[in-house]
Amino acid sequence: MAAAVARQLRTSVAPMVDVTDPCFLRLLRLISPFGNHQLWTEMVHANAFSRGQLHQNPAKLAQHIPLRELQDFAPHVVVQIGASAPDDAHAAVGRLAELGVRHVNLNCGCPSRNVQMGSFGAVLMKSPGLAAEIIGAMRDAARGSTCEVSVKCRIGIDDDESSGFLRRFIAAVADQQCSDAARPARIVLHARRAWLSGLSPKQNRKVPELNHQRVHEMVREFPHVSFVVNGGIDSVDAVRYHLARADGVMLGRKIREDPWFLAQLDQHVYGAPQHQIPSAAGVLAQYIQFADQMHSQYGTRYTILARPLYALFSGRRARAMRTHLGAAISRATAVPGADGSPTYAVPFGILVQDALRSAELEFRMRVGMLEPDAGADIGPREPETKQPAVAC
């Protein structure tokens, strides 16, 4: 890596629709309380701020922006926006900066049909001039604040995965970002091309072939740009490998499927002592406390609060918890509040504990166990702490 930019070996959790909501991000913070990782929100359309005035509705805002994390964790939170017009992007960044957001990212990589119809996401890579204008507007809105601006994109679009195509796009958006020497351009590169037709967003995350070497090539060609590599990275060894060749690593599906992987990185990449890694029981207890606060303050629905918990369990744990907690929530009596949000008679934490007991009882009856046994524990899985094997 070139020495022109102060390098920070950082890991990030990718923005994932219906996954990285404020509740899931809080769960990740409880699993990894050391501040080693950037946590990205789901994409929010800039129109929600410029025209919908989302920032003026705390209950709705709290469904998209981790307001509680901004109180003491703002430098580690990234809000991703989608925008097709500079004015909308300017308004969104201005509003987010006022809220205390320290980093806003422009989505130039989502290939979904709905996003394409809105003329943002991956289609912006076909119009590097427009993307540069949007970035310029975002940068202008962030001027005078501590808010950073960045871009997340693919390495190519449809049939064009050439170095020249990617180079032109990076040059256009990096020039806009580099107007302030104190804030070097920052680009997250998903090491797959995006197919704008013929593949679903889910298929676009798996079918296009990974090309990490193209990302490494851009790192060498643009020494004044800070690059984060994204796509298919799912082991400690892989994280180490890419951190030695780029400025950061972004993890997506790996964290969705196993959030405890952050604890492995804390130990084996950042050197956190094993005795400081939170316990599963402690994480669950703190999350329940957070969930009760979210419901009390913002009227967050129990179905939304429950969703991150399923990632804490594996195998039959996840299936049992999903079944019993889902049933308990559906039976819970809710009364509409003044703003229309539900108010439940039973605290969320009570429903979780009841679901745990029911799932454990179901398991014991299924295998014919008459006495408690360690194998019947259906509590959350403990973090993996052993040293990972070294890759060949």
Score class of each variant (00 low, 15 high):
24 F>K: 02
128 P>S: 14
389 A>M: 05
21 D>H: 05
291 A>G: 02
69 E>S: 05
359 A>W: 07
67 L>G: 05
339 D>P: 06
200 S>Y: 04
232 G>L: 12
212 H>R: 13
172 A>N: 07
311 A>G: 04
264 Q>R: 13
38 Q>P: 00
55 H>S: 06
58 P>E: 06
69 E>F: 00
326 G>A: 09
352 V>G: 01
267 Q>D: 02
68 R>I: 07
62 A>L: 02
48 A>D: 12
144 G>S: 14
107 N>H: 10
309 L>M: 11
381 R>F: 13
391 A>G: 03
145 S>H: 13
19 V>S: 05
298 Y>H: 07
313 F>K: 01
318 A>I: 14
168 R>I: 11
391 A>W: 04
307 R>D: 08
140 D>A: 15
20 T>Y: 04
102 R>G: 06
277 I>V: 06
391 A>F: 04
249 V>M: 09
78 V>K: 02
61 L>C: 08
228 V>Y: 10
389 A>P: 05
288 I>D: 04
80 Q>T: 07
106 L>G: 10
346 V>M: 07
240 R>K: 13
365 M>L: 12
331 R>E: 15
128 P>Y: 10
110 C>L: 07
373 D>A: 13
314 S>Y: 10
272 A>D: 05
334 A>T: 08
220 R>W: 01
368 G>S: 04
169 F>L: 12
135 I>H: 01
322 R>E: 14
32 S>E: 11
332 A>N: 11
38 Q>M: 06
325 L>K: 09
294 M>K: 13
264 Q>I: 11
185 A>R: 08
274 Q>T: 14
262 L>K: 00
267 Q>L: 01
205 R>C: 04
299 G>E: 02
266 D>M: 00
272 A>L: 00
27 L>I: 07
25 L>E: 00
276 Q>K: 07
177 Q>E: 12
377 D>N: 14
267 Q>S: 02
107 N>I: 07
93 V>T: 10
347 P>C: 14
346 V>T: 13
214 R>H: 15
302 Y>K: 12
193 R>I: 12
72 D>K: 00
286 Q>W: 14
78 V>N: 06
242 H>G: 10
351 L>N: 06
65 I>C: 00
173 V>M: 05
349 G>I: 12
185 A>F: 09
318 A>S: 11
366 R>Y: 07
164 G>T: 13
7 R>F: 02
124 L>D: 03
126 K>L: 09
241 Y>I: 05
135 I>W: 02
255 I>R: 00
30 L>N: 01
73 F>V: 04
